[in-house]
Amino acid sequence: MKGLEAILYHNGFAMAAVGVTIVFTALVSLSVIISQLHRVLFVWDNRKSYINKALRLFSAPKPHESEPVVKYFDNIYESARQFNLLIRATGEPFSLPELIGKAETRGIAHAHSTVSHLIAAGLIAADGRGYFRWNREAYEQLLRQEPK
């Protein structure tokens, strides 16, 4: 038996089609898996941070909108006014040791921690060249939020 008849008799077309399909399936699957391998390894290497992120998603409560912007400092408005005046008098830009020194000279209590809180609240901002500036926008915004 020869020719098309032989191929049909031995089910050749089906075997060839299935054979090609299986070869492609094997290599395509392998190719897809190994293309993701380096990503999987990256996730595995950073698994702790991913787990923490996931835990935070499920467990950490969202802050209430009514909470103050800087909850850890209950007299920020008064301190901000004092430092606003001080910085207007001494000029900008300024270095932090210079500002703290002048604040202590003028009798402002807890100058160190107050400056630290003002930085955290964004009122004192770095100018990118080693000095700091008073952020007037943030200051005015803060005063607008002050309870009457």
């Binding site: 038996m1 020869k2 020719g3 098309l4 032989a6 191929i7 031995h10 050749g12 077309f13 075997m15 060839a16 089609a17 054979g19 090609v20 070869v23 492609f24 094997a26 290599l27 395509v28």
Partner: peptide, 18 residues
């Protein structure tokens, strides 16, 4: 994978040749 098509086409050719 594509190059292996040759295997299966020749398989058909050999069947056709008897």
């Amino acid at each position: 994978a594509a190059a292996q098509t040759g295997i299966f086409i020749t398989f058909l050719g050999a069947l056709a040749l008897g």
